[in-house]
Structure formats: C-alpha cells, structure tokens
Amino acid sequence: MSLLLRISELLEPFSSDPGIYMVVLHRIDGVPIYVKAKRDKKVKLTTLLYWLEGQIKEVLYYIFTRNLSEASFKFQDMVVRMYPVSKTLVLSIIAKDETPLYKLDLDLESACREISSLVIV
C-alpha cells in the first residue's frame, strides 16, 4: 500500500465527521499533500485554505524552535487547529466551533503519530 493511500485511510474518518469541514495535510512549503473538504455552499473554505497555506511555515518555525505543540484559530463560527506531524508536515482541521474537540484531539494525535512513523525515513 502506498504512502498516500495509507495516509488517506488515516485521515478519511475525520472528513466523515459531521462537525469537520476540512482536513488538510500541508508540507512546509504550503503544498497540500492531502485535502478533503465538505461541499457546503454556506461555508467559504477557499479563503481559509489560502490563509492556511501562508501560515504553515510560521507555525512549523514555532513548533521546532519554541516547542509549540498545537495552534488554534477561531474565525466567526469556525475553528482551525494545526498539529505538527513531522519536520515538514502539519495537519490542519477546520471544524464548526461548536464541535467538541476534546476527544477528537486524541484521535487526531493518533493519526499524527501514525503518519509521522510513515514519513520519517
């Protein structure tokens, strides 16, 4: 099974979550390695995605120099959470702000660890 397929299997369940709008795995240069977004006309994700790409390098910088372990941003009724996966990968989710993330955090951390073990050569 290829790396991409394995990663998509790990991240696909999160895209199915009704409270999550988008799941993105970004590389350090802003290139999205994996993206799955829900089609919802009410939610404008493209602007957020563009903004997110610009944040990746900054976030990774803080992750590796200041021990930042996660970053969270709130936009109106959406929450963006970013989790470091490796030196060059960051996992981001965009969720409804009412989505309880306290349990989801554990599943996301599990996914990050699994992906990390796959990508770190």
Partner: peptide, 15 residues
Amino acid sequence: LKNIGYGEAFNRTLR
C-alpha cells in the same frame, strides 16, 4: 518535481 531537502517521505514530490 520538488525536493525540499529534509529527508522525509514527502520531501520529493511530483505534480
């Protein structure tokens, strides 16, 4: 072709 040079799996990618 891109290579960002950190030695991780997705560092070399083709689009």
